[in-house]
């Protein structure tokens, strides 16, 4: 473990708390893509299947449990508790276009052609693009509640912080993980536009609004 990865993981935790807080205080999941949240459940379940057969550490164990449980809880909030506040007509990204290529790529580019290994690879590729329905929705509506932008910023910071973590590991350890690195770079790249508006508007106290 190094500082970058720890901060990345904490940022990931924070993003989830911000999202749950947003839904519960505004009593609404307006502006949140159900599809993106459903993709995250898929990502976590596929990746953390290794909970059943591989022990890493107490930290690793509890984080995995937390990510699975909290993502399922968010789906529950959106699907049942605050269902009327979700508008499917603006959440229309075709997730097949993300899941399909992630399946195909994971069958071609993986470290080992084994079931759980391919599931892990699939989860990495899917996570890289899982934010797209959310960003697409943001683009469509052209605006976002400030708390929602904090959620997205924390989520983007999580992947961004993994990059110095990989650089650090490259120099201090003998192992590199090119699949995670390439997918992580793509994932962080998707946030660049968002970060630009976040830094130039939201952090200056303005509302998140995209130019018409």
């Amino acid at each position: 473990m190094n500082l970058f990865r720890l901060l990345g993981d904490l940022s990931h935790l924070a993003s989830i708390f911000i999202l749950i807080h947003k839904i519960q205080t505004t009593r609404s999941c307006r502006g949140i893509s159900f599809q993106t949240q459903a993709l995250y459940v898929t990502v976590f379940v596929a990746r953390y299947i290794d909970l059943f057969f591989r022990w890493i550490s107490l930290y690793n164990f509890f984080m995995k449990i937390f990510f699975i449980a909290s993502s399922v809880y968010i789906l529950y909030l959106m699907k049942y508790r605050y269902r009327p506040t979700h508008d499917p007509s603006i959440d229309t990204f075709k997730v097949e276009y993300l899941v399909g290529p992630a399946v195909v790529l994971s069958l071609i580019f993986n470290y080992k052609f084994e079931f759980t290994e391919i599931l892990w690879t699939f989860s990495i590729y899917l996570e890289a693009v899982a934010i797209l329905p959310q960003l697409f929705m943001l683009q469509r509506t052209g605006e976002a509640e400030t708390i929602t932008t904090h959620y997205l910023a924390a989520l983007g910071a999580y992947r961004a912080l993994y990059i110095p973590n990989w650089i650090y590991r490259y120099f201090t350890e003998d192992v590199v993980d090119p699949i995670a690195i390439v997918a992580g770079l793509v994932q962080t790249g998707l946030y660049l536009d968002f970060f630009y508006v976040y830094f130039t508007k939201v952090l200056q106290g303005q509302k998140f609004e995209l130019p018409a």
């Binding site: 993981d9 990931h12 984080m63 590991r169 003998d174 192992v175 590199v176 993980d177 090119p178």
Partner: peptide, 10 residues
């Protein structure tokens, strides 16, 4: 270096 999955990462 060898290319391998970093199993301890989340």
């Amino acid at each position: 270096e060898k290319a391998e999955r970093a199993k301890d990462e989340l």
